[in-house]
Design a protein around this nucleic acid. Structure first.
Lengths: 166, 166
DNA sequence: CTTGGAAAGTCAACAAGGCTGACGTAAATT
DNA sequence: AATTTACGTCAGCCTTGTTGACTTTCCAAG
């Protein structure tokens, strides 16, 4: 309610019907959101989990396994399976930490970066089209609502990623 | 910026950086979106797939299996596994069609409706909080962008659901 | 220096929920 | 009568999540 001068009328957007529409919009939109990368991945031997790992490694090069674990919200066994295939296939490089040698710092290799680019290009293209169709103000609202929907802990992580560089 | 006369400045929202933020916002927000129903379901012997089926049966009582198949975008074998347990457990009722006896019309039973209500109450509560925090205008933008992100076919289905009653 | 515990990796087993392919049955359509 | 459609089901596979148990490596505190 950025505009407080509308009386009771401004609460119409909180009806169960409006909320249900929002829920279904999330459901259908998420399908579109993942459709393009999924199409690329199904030819290769990778899945959505590989895409997510590569995305965040690209985003924060040198991130540790534990870091990635927290961001992705899966168990280390689950992540490890994905990570191992990426490392074995030469898409990700794991370097032993210099200050703390127990840690592994993750980087995309040349080939890894190329696949990541291919995937995120596809995803960004759809995002760009949606943003363009909706306009800047809608995009602002889109992000505001999404941020409000996040769990506090996840939101914290999202905001940290948002600012903090590599 | 409801005013379109801002020159090149109004395109800043289409930078790769802005798009990446939108992508990550979708990722983190979707986790929040499903978190509450998931928590309820993990105690019972059901999963997200059961929730989705119940949601759309609740939303369109009497819908056929084929209809549901199209909306959910899974194979009939996959849906059948879920549907069978719901029918066996007495949460969903399957009635043979009157005009076309090959069709099965799906309805929630009393108990099914109760669980559905419990799940959607949880999901709506989060949605309501997010909507309230973001305000009506942001909600409008949120929905606009999500609709633009959908595949055309899915968007058609979403809009049909949106208007068409039971 | 020893020891406790954190970080990382690995093995095994399992479950949910996708998928394909094949087959059966009943009903509608041609 | 033959074909198509709607639905159900069996069997088997894959991805990606889970627990639990165990090892290795290494930092840091006693």
């Amino acid at each position: 309610m950025s505009d407080p001068g509308h009386g009771g009328e401004s609460l119409l957007f909180l009806t169960d019907e409006q909320l249900r529409k929002g829920i279904e919009a999330m459901f259908f939109a998420y399908r579109g959101f993942t459709a393009d990368p999924d199409r690329i991945l199904e030819n290769l031997d990778y899945g959505r989990a590989h895409h997510r790992a590569m995305h965040f490694i690209h985003r924060s090069p040198g991130t540790t396994v534990n870091n990635l674990l927290n961001i992705l919200g899966v168990t280390k066994q689950s992540l490890n399976r994905v990570l191992r295939t990426l490392i074995d296939d030469g898409l990700v490089e794991s370097r032993i930490g210099k200050v703390d040698k127990r840690e592994r710092h993750l980087f995309l290799t040349e080939r890894g970066a190329e696949l990541e680019r291919q995937l995120s290009d596809a995803q960004r293209a759809r995002m760009r089209a949606a943003y363009r169709a909706a306009g800047p103000q809608a995009v602002q609202g889109f992000r505001t609502v999404l941020e409000s929907m996040m769990d506090p802990e996840l939101k914290r992580q999202y905001l940290t990623l948002k600012e903090g560089g590599a």
